[in-house]
Design a protein around this nucleic acid. Structure first.
Length: 630
RNA sequence: CGGGGCGUAGCUUAGCUUGGCUAGAGCGCAGCGUUCGGGACGCUGAGGCCGGAGGUUCAAAUCCUCUCGCCCCGACCA
């Protein structure tokens, strides 16, 4: 096929590995470019690769058919349960090149940033590689292939998500694949919220993925907000065309559909149909769904083109009721964020500029990441009658008058997972708060001999059953291809809160080694009573994580009295900066332009002391929180 | 969309400036053996024709043109 381009060197048709293999067996290309066996040299000279050792003798003749039965021998798994998440490729590279490369010149992250998706590993190694073959034997310290936070926070985050197997990039630009471990985390978050939603009277339902394009236009500011990032469906059929397959022009839709970026419009249209009387209200519906917003720049979990979320949509008879709903749900968000994700948040309102497109008021929970940037972790909108008017959600009131309903909407997304990662994790990997951790405790059995293995196994079985009965999510890592040390690091990377190391010595003593992921301290404890001890310890860890994050957050709230001070503080210290602001949008815009910081949240409790507002100098009692944000 | 950078094995990459020996390596993967309390080791093996298409040339991973994709920086956002 290729031959026209390589008419001469016939042997080059073979793939390189194949050539290499043949070469090893002493077969070389002849002058005519054909492969043939080299004449055995001297006396029965054994060509390389034909070594008559164990395994397969005649290497050249029956190459790689061995092992056909190789699987049989290892079928005998005894107390086995597959890891709850099949992990495909182990985490790979990264750990390698850094190991020796970094040593050569003691550099650290001197590497170019360019790598992006695989930025790590590029770091050291490279330039000094003249000595390739040599290597330096030594294991490059404790490099786990995770970029340290101090070196490059964004790369660190990416390493954790990828190597912790929470998510992976997909072939679709900007869209991620949430892997089983990441999804199990989301399922836990989802279930917790879902329970609270139901407790507050909401029901789940499901609305279409597609929305008629015209719907979007019905609410003026809503279009403005979303028009720029909508995926549009224009055809419903493909056909073979000049350049392969293409949309069939005959199948063009009369009215294009958009893929929902959010569902206010289509839900509004349905509510209009369902609401006739005040007796039909309130309508309290939530949907768990995926939405699409065509983002320019994406980051795993934090901003992807498609993301997974929950959107609650309610319609009420009165303004007050709708306002109460808005606040009730932001409180649910606060509660779950703080009590389950152990992620402290500030609760407040958005400025007009930051408000949801179409909302009258937007309330938010705002978290702070370890790098000093804020993260909007959830929003609840009081939509007034904007959508009710646009979609004619009308009803006959108690007084017989026809009127518009008052609506709200509120949502949290898989972005919370990004927040979770950036709130607690460290240079060794993820750190999961126990209430959320898919696995709360992992057991690492240790043995040398088969008798030990059996003894350890039954010992472990004994207490693991009790732990499970006590409601602890425990997993036994009995993989035989990895040594204990490897497993320690592996589970630390995954953020499992507790690790139990159990070896022959422990079996004899009725003990085990208990290690905490946060802090990392180890202690030897009695196995008896673990089922009461672990749940307590898990709660302590939960509390400790929250306390630590909160202390950091609180220490990261600064004050500024003037515009200059605000800018300086944002640049030098990061975090939240509280400053007097009188509502002037121009000043807000100026801050945004100058230092990429926005008003994250306006809290009633920050109001107080009267001061000249930044920018305008007008006296104001309103103090607002600025920050750079994700 | 504007500005930069990068595409060589599953991953990280060497080679490209100055075309030519068989495209090297580390990790990972498979088999066997020894190991197993903080990422073990040995041996053997599998796996690339260099993002794609043209062109120049006796000869292209390497030079030229086009193209596709990805990453970074900016404008937008949960």
């Amino acid at each position: 096929m290729d031959s026209r381009r390589r008419p001469v060197l016939g042997h080059r048709w073979l793939p390189a590995p194949k050539r290499k293999r043949l070469r090893r067996r002493g077969i070389k290309p002849s002058a005519h470019g054909q492969w043939k066996r080299a004449p055995a040299r001297a006396s029965g000279g054994v060509a390389r690769g034909e070594r008559p050792t164990g395994g397969s003798p005649a290497g050249a003749t029956l190459p790689r058919f061995v092992g056909g039965d190789g699987t049989a021998g290892r079928g005998e798994r005894t107390w086995r349960s597959a890891a709850p998440w099949s992990r495909g490729g182990r985490f790979d590279a990264g750990m390698t090149p850094m190991g020796d490369g970094g040593k050569g010149d003691g550099n650290l992250g001197g590497g170019d940033k360019a790598g992006g998706q695989q930025s790590l590993g590029k770091g050291g190694g490279k330039q000094a590689d003249g000595q390739k073959g040599g290597g330096d034997g030594g294991k490059g310290g404790s490099q786990l292939g995770i970029t340290p936070r101090a070196t490059d926070y964004a790369a660190w985050y990416q390493d954790l998500v990828l190597k912790g197997e929470l998510a992976d990039y997909s072939p679709v630009r900007g869209c991620m694949v949430v892997r089983p471990y990441g999804w199990s985390l989301w399922e836990r978050i989802r279930d917790i919220f879902d329970r609270f939603f139901k407790e507050t009277g909401h029901q789940n339902a499901q609305f279409p993925l597609f929305i008629p394009m015209s719907f979007l236009a019905k609410e003026a500011s809503h279009v403005e907000g979303f028009a720029k990032e909508c995926a549009v469906v224009t055809h419903y059929r493909l056909k073979a065309g000049a350049n392969g397959i293409e949309p069939d022009p005959e199948s063009k839709l009369d009215e294009p559909l958009i893929v929902r970026p959010t569902s206010e419009t289509i839900i509004g249209a349905m509510y209009a149909k369902w609401v006739q009387s005040w007796r039909d209200l309130p309508i309290l519906i939530n949907q768990w769904a995926n939405v699409v917003r065509w983002e320019m720049r994406t980051r795993l979990f934090l901003r992807t083109t498609e993301f997974f979320w929950q959107e609650g949509h309610t319609a009420h008879e009165t303004e007050q009721e709708a306002r109460e709903e808005t606040l009730k749900m932001i409180e649910v968000y606060r509660k779950v964020a703080e009590e389950y994700l152990a992620m402290p948040v500030l609760v407040g309102q958005k400025s007009a500029a930051e408000r949801f497109a179409g909302a009258v008021e937007t309330w938010c929970i705002e978290a702070l990441m370890q790098d000093g940037k804020a993260l909007q972790a959830g929003t609840s909108h009081f939509l007034g009658q904007n959508f009710a008017k646009a979609f004619e959600i009308e009803f006959a009131g108690r007084d017989g008058q026809r009127q518009n309903a008052w609506t709200t909407s509120w949502g949290v997304s898989t972005r919370l997972i990004g927040g979770l990662v950036m709130t607690h994790s460290d240079d060794k990997g993820l750190v999961m708060p126990p209430r959320l951790a898919p696995i709360q405790a992992v057991v690492i059995p240790i043995w040398r001999k088969d008798e030990e293995k059996a003894a350890v196994a039954s010992y472990v079985d004994g207490f693991v059953a009790k732990l499970k009965a006590a409601g602890v999510r425990v997993h036994v890592d009995d993989r035989e291809q990895f040594k204990p040390g490897y497993k320690f690091n592996d589970w630390e990377l995954r953020g499992v809160p507790l690790r139990l190391e159990v070896g022959p010595r422990d079996v004899a003593a009725g003990k085990c080694v208990l290690a905490r992921r946060d802090g990392g301290e180890k202690q030897i404890v009695d196995v008896a009573g673990l089922e009461t001890r672990l749940p307590e310890l898990l709660e302590q860890i939960q509390a400790a994580l929250f306390a630590k994050a909160k202390a950091f957050r609180d220490a990261s709230i600064h004050r500024a009295r003037t515009y200059e001070e605000l800018v300086k503080t944002l640049e030098e210290k990061g975090g939240f900066v509280l400053a007097p602001w009188d509502g002037d949008a121009a000043v807000e815009a100026k801050v945004k332009e100058e230092c990429k910081a926005t008003i994250r949240c306006i809290r009633a409790e920050d109001a107080g002391e009267s001061a000249p507002a930044i920018g305008t100098g007008q006296p104001t009692t309103q103090w607002v929180l600025f920050a750079k944000a994700y």
